[in-house]
């Protein structure tokens, strides 16, 4: 199975966020750049299944130059190829269109993504890619393997509140991977350095020749949700805080 894994570079934490005049993104200073959590699980599972079935794994990301780091992580985890779509857009609608267009140009049987990115928090790009490509999809997947029937993938997905479903899906398909109990591996420094020397393919938005690439939203303002908080905050030393909060607890039980 040839497998394409969508991985997003996300900030570990952010400082000084603001909306630029273009109103199509939030700019910020990133504390660090990391691979999005569920994408790390997607990457691990995607590369493993590609190798097991004698296929190739490709990692793809849509992002600015600094997002290359997640592609190197992918190569460090033995992906065969890496592609970056050069854009710094936020818009999940645009990102999914661009990724779908880039994926169309590749040979693949399966596309694997994460469930939700920690910065956009949209849970939208994976399924949108599937629909742009006209492919069947599964969301919140915990496990996958080659299906019993030819040319299928067998997945276990969450339906919520402990319920799970096992499905066999015809290939090509898109699978959105969830975090799970098998921790993703750590790439040793030596392998990471080797990965940094491997070639990366870059596609510009222009290369993708999309007819319609309009923004789906206009960002008006950003604010901190706790501005809306009604919680009574308890100040003081830990001992003082503990005394107050234990008193509050005593009043209830």
């Amino acid at each position: 199975m040839n497998i394409i894994v969508c991985t997003k570079a996300v900030p570990g934490f952010i400082k000084n966020p603001y909306v630029p005049d273009t109103q199509d993104r939030v700019n910020y200073d990133a504390g660090s750049i990391v691979i999005n959590e569920s994408d790390d699980y997607a990457l691990e599972a995607g590369v493993k299944l590609a190798k097991k079935t004698g296929g190739k794994a490709t990692v793809i990301t849509a992002g600015s130059l600094s997002s290359q780091k997640v592609l190197q992580t992918g190569l460090g985890k033995d992906a065969d190829r890496a592609i970056r779509v050069d854009t710094d857009a936020y818009d999940p609608a645009r990102i999914s269109k661009a990724l779908a267009e880039a994926i169309k140009g590749q040979e693949f049987d399966l596309v694997v993504t994460g469930v939700e990115s920690s910065d956009s928090m949209a849970a939208q790009v994976g399924v949108s890619i599937a629909e742009h490509l006209g492919l069947p999809f599964a969301y919140a997947v915990l496990e996958m393997e080659a299906g019993e029937a030819d040319n299928t993938v067998r997945i276990t997905k969450e339906l919520g509140f402990g319920k799970k479903q096992i499905e066999e899906i015809e290939l090509p398909a898109v699978v959105c991977f969830q975090t799970g109990t098998e921790p993703p591996s750590f790439v040793p420094v030596r392998k990471m350095m080797m990965a940094q020397r491997k070639p990366l393919k870059t596609l510009s938005i222009g290369d993708l020749k999309m007819e319609d690439y309009a923004a789906s939203v206009k960002i008006l303002e950003i604010f901190t949700p706790t501005d809306l908080s009604v919680a009574e905050m308890i100040d003081g030393t830990p001992a003082e805080q503990a005394a107050v909060v234990m008193q509050k607890i005593k009043e209830v039980i």
């Binding site: 939030v26 928090m121 309009a214 789906s216 939203v217 950003i222 604010f223 901190t224 949700p225």
Partner: peptide, 14 residues
Amino acid sequence: MFGGTLQARMELAG
């Protein structure tokens, strides 16, 4: 957005 530490007000443009 951003792990819930920020919220954004947006206008639907599409």
